[in-house]
Design a protein around this nucleic acid. Structure first.
Lengths: 199, 199
DNA sequence: ATGCCAATATACCGTTCGGTACATTAAAAG
DNA sequence: CTTTTAATGTACCGAACGGTATATTGGCAT
């Protein structure tokens, strides 16, 4: 018979706890620099417990991406719907990114650190599909917007990539303490992207 | 007595060869993912030879940065001198970056992959001083330019960071095969930074 | 009460990690 | 021709790596 209840009256869910510890460590030290032993010690369990829930170290990263990146992707995709006002849509997207980075700083630090990582590295190969989908969603926005703005025609890929680049840059700047992720920064970013530094 | 000649009639200089192999591997797989053994095997020597020339693995990265990043820094600093035409100066800086990325793709891939790496990671701590100096050089440019362009006042830090962000983004885009690093892309980048995507 | 099974720990695997003690090589200096 | 010394290989270190065979635990259904 199928069962959905827990056998052990655990104080906390081990699987989620492992994931949380792994994310913290990956974000602060980098994926390759963190050992499995370090993760499970931080989580207060042992290695076989981790390997019971996840196939391997890579599976940990995959689970993190599945939990957070797909969530982010949905929000970004929704915000990317074009309704005739490109400035508003870009503002919405930026706010989704900023909100997500503020709400899940560890995840976003990890995504940031792997954004331009070597394509051959294991970690990059795990996150690439998600990055690609984010990119495609924004590409489509610019493709639609090009119908109203002729000068955008044929530039949707470069616009999507550079827009994502500016967003990642601004979030990186905030993580390094140079500024704060607030509505004013959203405005500055959009203004810079749309009109450049010459007001 | 001081000697400048080689004792061994080596076909190739081991020290430079080790550095070259290390750079290639760091760039393609990531600093943490590359072991010392892999480096020396690629270089066709053994570990003690590497440790004869470099203190440790970190010393390898430091030597790479000293060879390439200080070179790049000099070029960027020179190009950052403000002579009344901010557009031209930014164009010059961008061309220096593009030229350097094209001439030393392995080095720049490495710098790119560590640009937003976790601040606690060893590799980031090695490259940070160089990144910081590049940033300061460009900050100073915007500080000077603000005398001619009042609207820039108080924004030199954000401008410098976002300008570097766009440059890194564009170079990353080219490395991933979406476009090529040529004069046309320099123009596009500068135009976007100065006037936004709305021509 | 008992058999089942998800969940977890003990103890271990072979490999690779960064790093080194020590012997050897060979060319320059005397 | 001997001494010196930069340069390099052999062989090894303890620790950490990712991963696992196996035993135990303890609720659950029967």
């Amino acid at each position: 018979m199928y069962r959905t209840v827990y056998w052990h009256y655990n104080i906390m869910n081990n699987k989620e706890n492992i994931l949380k510890c792994a994310l913290e460590l990956f974000a602060s030290k980098g994926y390759d620099a963190v050992g499995v032993q370090e993760i499970v010690t931080n989580a207060g369990i042992t290695k076989p417990t981790m390997y019971y829930y996840f196939e391997n170290k890579r599976g940990l990263l995959e689970a993190i991406m599945k939990e957070y990146a797909s969530d982010l992707l949905i929000k970004v995709t929704k915000a990317s719907a074009y309704h005739g006002d490109i400035t508003k849509t870009l503002t919405d997207i930026t706010m989704e990114y900023f909100n997500y980075a503020a709400k899940h700083p560890d995840f976003f630090r990890l995504q940031l650190s792997l954004w331009l990582a070597p394509p051959e590295s294991e970690a990059f190969q795990v996150i690439f599909p998600y990055l690609e989908l984010e990119q495609k969603a924004i590409e489509e926005l610019f493709l639609y917007a090009a119908k109203d703005h002729g000068n955008m025609k044929g530039r949707h890929v470069l616009y999507a990539l550079s827009f994502l680049g500016i967003i990642h840059t601004y979030i990186g700047i905030s993580f390094n303490g140079y500024t704060k992720l607030n509505d004013e920064l959203v405005y500055k970013l959009i203004h810079q992207f749309m009109h450049g530094i010459f007001s």
